[in-house]
Every structure is written in structure tokens, then in C-alpha cells.
Design a protein around this nucleic acid. Structure first.
Lengths: 394, 394
DNA sequence: CTGTATAAACTCGTCCATCGAGCATAAAGG
DNA sequence: CCTTTATGCTCGATGGACGAGTTTATACAG
């Protein structure tokens, strides 16, 4: 018998196997032959690794559709009895709970609406949903990933302005103490999902920027979010890129937040701050073609967005920028203003080859996907694999 | 015989050995026993690995000073015939060329002044210096790291405003085609050095901010700079955190650059832009105690710096911020204004536990250290080790 | 000065993921 | 039906790491 030891240099037991599983989840439906070729595995190693993974219920192989001569290969997929993760997306007005296998496609199994209620009344039902899913699948469930529209530090929610909550303990969502709970900001996790399997797939450095109420986002390098020391990185909305002196609810002044969302549009129109800036912004964007004053206000807001974004591009130098939430509608509603501000704000040497700025493609599901991905990251480690094999043979 | 193959999954030949070398260079003078304990190596593995590394001239062992009972261990150090890297620091007015062994301490061996000359006349002498060092040490030299006060994209200098140069090809510095050449921005490399062995040593996420003419810097995560897609990340000075509308030589407007260096101080004093903003700023800082108008101008500049820095902290969430170049003198000259702007610009939830903001400790040598570190990173890889063993046995 | 305690190095048999060469196999094409 | 081709499978070899047992170099106690 061998003791589990934390950071062995030489414990290469899972190296090849994890590489194969990573390939499988990065591209569900790859064939064994392609994976072996990409990883530089000999066919003997591929045979041994896949056999071991099948034995451990981590992988299933199905005959691949023949394409040309030669012995047909197999397509790799998650095992029907393999590990699962639970992904939860807790949004401003509702929540969703999904299950994902190792290929990382979350399948929504429960959902609910909670608009306006306090944390106790919201967390309870979600925890019950998680517990139901956990009970249904038993030990197959290995981790819970949670995306929440809130600021997260050290894995805890420290403030949730859009939800109207203060610091909240989401520990109850782990269903029982043994399930790892991975909590992340929704914009961060959506950025991770876009960078890995969305509009920025393949980019080594992707910047995701999302407007809802204020601006969130994240820089994603090699599939991992640059989340800083406490995990609260990506609060681009609280760079003072907005109107100097304007007081932000966050406590600072001049925040970019105030210059790019519905509050900015209302201010430019001389109206009071809207209760729901998101809905207000959508309504304003919808009537730009009919109303010149609104079009001007939206244009000015889009300009603030483009100018700040150019600064972020100067500072962070991404390959691709993905726009989530209202960012894409805002750009689309005032393309000339946005583009002028963006190009004008870029350093000259960047203008020849600026990064692509594209709409996010995962839409409302980005954060949920990201939660599943993060939970899977936790499972697909040496420690996670050891835990899984231990769970298989009790 | 074995072919070098690019990305073998299973080629774990160098895993343990590289881990030991990393420990040695992170903390020159560690003992073998401590390294083995940290890496979780059995004493047998430690014996085998160190023997192999000594045999390959990668490591030397010397008896450690005895401390208490028990068989004395050995201290690990670079081998006297082991691999070397050349580090070059090309600054605004002069350059330095250093040699470093695997412990990463650059020793300056040549230097020169070039103020005001064109690239051809500057690169030639540096290339000759590199060639002399290369000739002296022969195959022991494995790579050249270059820190340059310029914007670097894809390993090439694309603009060097402070040097008064346009895009320049530094390829000649590699001495001969077989030496890998690693070119980096000086502020970025200084940040790497501060994060690994300077004021931010030990921090997982460190932000380095350096004022000279404008602002440069880098975010360093786990010892690696977040340099973006093209390597030009860290241009924080071209976030529009400055005065809106003010035109920057970079082509954009409102750049932070213009609000924090000597140009800002001059502007606040109603003077024309100085030819040498660095010297101007130093002079102004020196006379703040005597001249109230200058003190006010410096204070306003320090406030712009503190406010922008707070935004960067909000967005990037570092553990530690290191201040390089004029940043520390500026802060010291107007601490109340700086601190007020910094604290006022932080999001409220960050104020309870803000990151430490400390002076860089490597001073003028930061970039040179960073260049050596980067070159060593290139050597201390599987490929670098294979090349070294190939060079040993011709 | 000698014996004991202690910590670390060394020895050696074992393990195991991977390699690589050769063989077996399942299609497509003639 | 036989050949071609790409792939999977088998099996001995390799080599880094492990771990238990042994040796060695020092400090300390008497």
C-alpha cells in the first residue's frame, strides 16, 4: 500500500492519463489515434492508458466512423459511470443547477427564481437541489462549482451588490462536507468558458469583458483566469476610467462602471439613476434608431466603453477580446462611436494588428460552463484521481 | 540513441533534476537535505539526482556548516564548469553586460555609455562585448537575456521612444546564431526580478510599477510575467487614467503616462514639457521642502499616481505592489497625497486588507537580474538540459 | 577519550509508466 | 480475394523514483 503524499516530484502515475483526459475534454469526440499523435504517445502507451482509464470508469471508447483505409480507431468520451461535477449559476434573479461529466457540457437539471429574496431563502433551495443531485448520483459527484454574481475573495462571497446581499457563506451548497466547493465570480467564470471553449478558444491570452450593472471580466492566460491574490481580480469596472469625481457605490470615484452601463445612459439623458440599469440600458439601446437624444447618449456610453477597452488592451495585450452581457449590444448600437474610441485609444504600434474584439458565444450559459470547467479542473488532478480510485474501491 | 522529441508526455527524465536545480537557484546555499524534504524526495532519490547533476557539471556540493547532531549535509551551488547565461541591460544612456551561473546572480563584466547615438553605433559594441564573453566561456554560455528600455513584441523591439529609436533588430546580440536570444522590456524584467528575488519574493501575484518617463511595469504570477499575446503587456501607462483629452505621443489620449512623470509636474507648474522628464522630476522632488508651488505640483502628481494605482489594484488584485524608478521617490515626497488617493481609490471591501505597497529593492539592477532569470528559465528546461548534455559530449 | 544519540547519506531490490519493435487486425481499394 | 494502410496489441527493456535497511559523520554526555 502507498500513502497519498502531497507534492511528490516523481509520482508520474497520472501524467499520461491526465493528458489523455484533458484532450478528451478539450475536444469531445477526438479519436484515440489523434490524441496519441498529439501527445507523442507510442501506440503501446495509448493502449495501456486507455485500458486503465476504461477500467477506472474514467473513459469510454466507441468505434469511430471509418474514414479511409486502415484499422478504424475509437472515439473517446466520458464513461457512463464516470465522475461528475455539479455546476451552479446564481444570478441576479434566478439560479440554475447542472451536472457535467468529464467532457464538461453542463446539463441543467434544476432551476429556480429568487428575485429579491434574502440569502437564507435562496441558498436553502439551491442546497436542496445540489443535495438531490448528489443523492441521485452518489459518489460519482466529485465537486461543486458555483458561479455567483458577486465579488469573491478567498472562495467566499464578500459582497453581492446586484443580489442586494452582503458577505454570504455559500458553504451549505457543498451538500456535505466532503464535496469540494469552488466558488467564482460569474464574469470570471464566463471568461474562462469563452477562452477555453467559446469565442476565444485557442487564444493563449484572452480578455473577457462583460457589462451588466457595471463591468466585470477577466484575463485568461492558458485557460486559467488571472484572479490575483485573493481571487477578486478582474474588477475592471473599478479602474478610474470614467468621469473624474463621480462617486461610485464601491467607495471609489471615477469608476469605469459608472460610464458604461445603464446609469451612464440615464445620466447623459439627464434622467435619474434607474432602479434596474440593465433593463434600462436594453430599452435605451432598443430605441436608438427612433430617438436621436437616446442615440447620442448611447453613443457617448459606447465611446466610454471603447476608450476604456483600448486602455485595457494597451495594458494587458490580449489575443482576443470577448464581449459578454450588454457589451455586445452596446457596441452594435453605436459601432462608429465605439470603434473610433477603441482605435483612438490604442497605442499607435498596436493599430496595425489590434486584437479581435468579438461577441461572446456562450451567452447566458458562460458562467455555468465556467463553473463546470473549474470544478472539473479540480477533479482532473493527481489528487482528484487518487480520490476517485479510492471511492471506486471502498 | 534517442531522438529529441518535442512534447513527450512521458519523458520524465529531467523532472526531479530540474526541481532540484530550481530550488538551488531560488535559494542559493540551500542544503541537499532541505531540498529533498521540500520536494518530498526520498534520500535515495536525492543521492541519485545530485550525483547525476554533479556528473553533468550542473551542480556542486560543498560540506555544509554543521549545525547540531547528525551527519552533516551539503550545500548546493552552481558547478564551476556549469552552464552560464549572458544578461544585457540596454538603458537610456548606457548598457551593461553580465554573466550569471545557475544561481542567477549576474556579475557585470562589461559596460558602456551610448547616450544619444543611433542603434547601429550602440548595438555593435554590445554585440562585441557579448562575443568576447561567449568566446571566453565557450559552450558554457547557453543563452542571452536582454532587457531593453523599449516596447517589445514577439521578441523584437518595435519602438524605443526613450532611446530615440524606431523598431530595431537586436538579433546581432546573440553573438552567433546558435545562442538563444531572449529580449524583454526593462520594466517587465525588473518586475520579474522583484517578484522572484526582490521585494515581492514569495508573493504569488505581484504588481511592479515603475516610473521613468511614463509608467511601465508588469503583473507577475507565480514568477512569470503576464505579458500578453505579443509580449507587450504591462503598458499600464497607456490606460486612460490621466487627464481626459491630453494627447500622448503614443497616439492615444488621456494616458496615465502624462499624469505621473516629470511632464505632469512641469504642466502643473505651468512650465513647458521638459526635455528630460526624469531628471526634471528628480529635481522637482528634491526641492519640494523649499518650494510650496513645486510641492503642490508634486503632490498632485503623486495623487494621480496613487489614484491610478488603486485602480490597478482593484483590477488586478496583487499581493504586493513594488515601486521602481521614480515611483518610490514620488510617493515619499508626497506621502499624504499619495496615500489619500490610493486609499480613496480602493474598493471599500479592499480597504480592510490592502496589498502592501513597497519600494523595489533591486534598484538599478532589477532589469539585469530579470534578464538573467529569463535566460536561465530557458536553460532550465528539458530541452535546455538535453542541449547541455549534448554540448558536454561532442 | 569513549560511547551513545542523531540526522543524513548511501545501497539495493522493487515498482511502474513509458518506450519501441514486432505482430495482429480491421477496414478500403483493386 | 489479396494488397494496402492505419491502427491496436503484446512484450521485453529502460530508467527515474521509492523505501527499507545500512553506513557514516557529527554532537553531546559521562
Amino acid at each position: 500500500m502507498r500513502m497519498a503524499s502531497p507534492s511528490r516530484v516523481g509520482d508520474a502515475r497520472w501524467r499520461g492519463a491526465l493528458a489523455v483526459l484533458e484532450e478528451m475534454r478539450r475536444e469531445p469526440g477526438v479519436t484515440r489515434a489523434v490524441v496519441a499523435q498529439r501527445l507523442g504517445l507510442s501506440s503501446g502507451s495509448a493502449t495501456e492508458i486507455t485500458a486503465r482509464l476504461r477500467e477506472l470508469a474514467l473513459l469510454s471508447e466507441a468505434p469511430a466512423a471509418a474514414s479511409g483505409r486502415g484499422r478504424p480507431t475509437t472515439v473517446l468520451g466520458p464513461h457512463p459511470e464516470g465522475p461528475l461535477v455539479i455546476a451552479v449559476d446564481l444570478r441576479q434573479e434566478d439560479w440554475r443547477c447542472a451536472v457535467a461529466a468529464l467532457d464538461g457540457r453542463p446539463e441543467i437539471v434544476e432551476a429556480g427564481v429568487h428575485a429579491g429574496r434574502g440569502p437564507e431563502q435562496v441558498i436553502g433551495p439551491i442546497a436542496q437541489a445540489v443535495r438531490r443531485v448528489h443523492t441521485r448520483h452518489g459518489r460519482r459527484v466529485r465537486a461543486v462549482g458555483v458561479a455567483v454574481a458577486a465579488t469573491v475573495q478567498h472562495g467566499r462571497v464578500v459582497q453581492a451588490a446586484t443580489l442586494g446581499w452582503d458577505a454570504v457563506d455559500l458553504g451549505a451548497l457543498a451538500s456535505d462536507a466532503r464535496l469540494p466547493l469552488l466558488i467564482g465570480n460569474d464574469a470570471t467564470l464566463a471568461g474562462v468558458a469563452e477562452a477555453r471553449e467559446g469565442a476565444a478558444a485557442g487564444a493563449a491570452t484572452a480578455l473577457h469583458v462583460m457589462i451588466e450593472v457595471g463591468v466585470g471580466g477577466t484575463l485568461v492566460v492558458d485557460g486559467r483566469p488571472v484572479s490575483g491574490a485573493t481571487g477578486a481580480g478582474g474588477e475592471f469596472g473599478h479602474l478610474p476610467l470614467g468621469e473624474p469625481g463621480l462617486r461610485c457605490p464601491c467607495g471609489a470615484t471615477g469608476c469605469w462602471d459608472l460610464a458604461v452601463d445603464g446609469r451612464a445612459i440615464a445620466r447623459h439623458l439627464g434622467e435619474p439613476p434607474p432602479d434596474d440599469p440593465r433593463t434600462y440600458a436594453l430599452a435605451a439601446i432598443a430605441r436608438t434608431s427612433a430617438d436621436a437624444a437616446t442615440a447620442a447618449a448611447v453613443g457617448r456610453t459606447a465611446g466610454s466603453f471603447g476608450g476604456g477597452l483600448a486602455g485595457l488592451i494597451n495594458a494587458l495585450d490580449p489575443d482576443v477580446v470577448t464581449l459578454g452581457g450588454l457589451a455586445q449590444p452596446l457596441r452594435a448600437a453605436a459601432t462608429p462611436e465605439f470603434e473610433a474610441a477603441l482605435t483612438g485609444g490604442l497605442m499607435r504600434f498596436r493599430r496595425a494588428d489590434p486584437p479581435r474584439v468579438v461577441a461572446a458565444v456562450l451567452g447566458q450559459d458562460g458562467a455555468l460552463h465556467g463553473a463546470a470547467l473549474t470544478a472539473l479542473d479540480h477533479v482532473l488532478t493527481e489528487a482528484g484521481m487518487n480520490a476517485w480510485t479510492a471511492a471506486l474501491r471502498p
